[in-house]
Amino acid sequence: MRVLILGGTSEASTLVKRLDPRIDATLSLAGRTSAPKREPVRTRIGGFGGPEGLTAWIAENRIEAVIDATHPFAAQIGRNAALTCKRTGVALLAIRRPAWERRPGDLWTEVETMAEAALALGEMTRRVFLTIGRLEVGAFTTAPQHDYVVRSIEPIGDALPVPRLAEIAARGPFDEAAETAFLAERRIEILVTKNSGGPATYGKIAAARALGIPVVIVRPPRKPDVASVPDAEGALAWLERRLDC
């Protein structure tokens, strides 16, 4: 069975490592990192060119099923996959990890966008930890009065031209103990993050709770209503059922 896996997440990585040998898989990555982790399946890098390009690629490669294992905030590719599979009749399954839920002791301000997150920091100068990836840090140019610590896999370049900025290059996962030490060492006063769900980056949320640090957290975008499972194990079971049909 020929399968396209739209990846870039820990779930996609787990999935491709455990595929049945009868599955001929292609893993597609958006290309937002210059040195993605090597995976044990055929890998393509870059976009498809919208729904039309994705439709053409699926037809050319005789794809029989698509797994959307993209990041919870990768809304566009999810919409493209849903539209393409509806048009072509190709089976589609999405891996939708549950969002984090507020727990006792969490000091959350929930917002819809990065622009709202920047406003939520307030006027008073604060030491801010941005852990949102590099593509949206520019939203915080509207709040240049703060001291920013930005952690990202890739350099952010000149995307955040503010007077006080420290960059940390790192790739997760990050556990709670490491995050607690990091927040304390950097004297972080407020954390900005996306509600990405899953265990890989939850350590910062638990650390902020333990240290009493407030969190501005961006809600995930709405995704298309398609068949879904919460994890890689569910996707593996779905594929196995299709193999046995």
Score class of each variant (00 low, 15 high):
103 R>N: 07
115 A>P: 07
93 L>Q: 05
94 A>F: 02
134 R>F: 00
122 G>R: 12
132 I>M: 10
152 S>Y: 03
187 R>Y: 08
94 A>G: 11
133 G>D: 07
122 G>Q: 13
108 W>E: 06
193 T>I: 13
105 G>E: 12
103 R>Y: 02
128 V>T: 05
150 V>A: 07
90 V>E: 04
182 F>Y: 11
103 R>K: 15
117 A>E: 06
155 P>Q: 07
147 D>W: 03
115 A>S: 15
96 R>F: 04
191 L>D: 05
167 E>H: 14
126 R>H: 05
151 R>W: 12
101 E>V: 12
188 I>T: 03
126 R>A: 10
144 P>T: 13
163 P>V: 02
89 G>T: 04
121 L>V: 11
178 A>E: 15
146 H>T: 02
144 P>D: 13
94 A>Y: 03
163 P>G: 02
124 M>W: 05
129 F>Y: 09
118 A>F: 08
150 V>E: 04
92 L>G: 08
95 I>H: 11
141 T>L: 00
124 M>I: 15
88 T>S: 11
136 E>R: 13
152 S>P: 07
151 R>L: 11
174 F>D: 13
161 P>V: 03
163 P>K: 02
158 D>T: 12
122 G>H: 10
177 A>R: 15
140 F>W: 01
181 A>M: 05
188 I>K: 06
172 G>K: 08
192 V>N: 04
89 G>P: 04
120 A>R: 11
91 A>L: 00
146 H>V: 01
183 L>R: 08
106 D>E: 13
163 P>S: 03
99 A>L: 02
134 R>W: 01
106 D>H: 15
169 A>T: 06
113 T>E: 11
159 A>G: 09
93 L>S: 06
90 V>T: 15
126 R>E: 04
179 E>L: 05
100 W>H: 05
188 I>F: 05
172 G>L: 07
87 R>P: 01
178 A>T: 14
164 R>T: 08
154 E>W: 06
109 T>I: 13
167 E>P: 07
104 P>L: 08
144 P>I: 11
112 E>R: 15
111 V>D: 03
126 R>D: 02
87 R>V: 01
132 I>D: 05
120 A>V: 10
135 L>W: 01
89 G>W: 00
111 V>E: 06
163 P>I: 01
153 I>S: 08
98 P>C: 06
159 A>P: 09
88 T>F: 02
181 A>D: 11
149 V>W: 03
162 V>P: 00
122 G>C: 13
190 I>L: 15
170 A>G: 08
190 I>Q: 14
154 E>M: 10
117 A>Q: 06
172 G>T: 10
176 E>D: 13
116 E>F: 08
109 T>E: 14
121 L>F: 10
95 I>L: 10
186 R>Y: 11
153 I>A: 14
186 R>W: 14
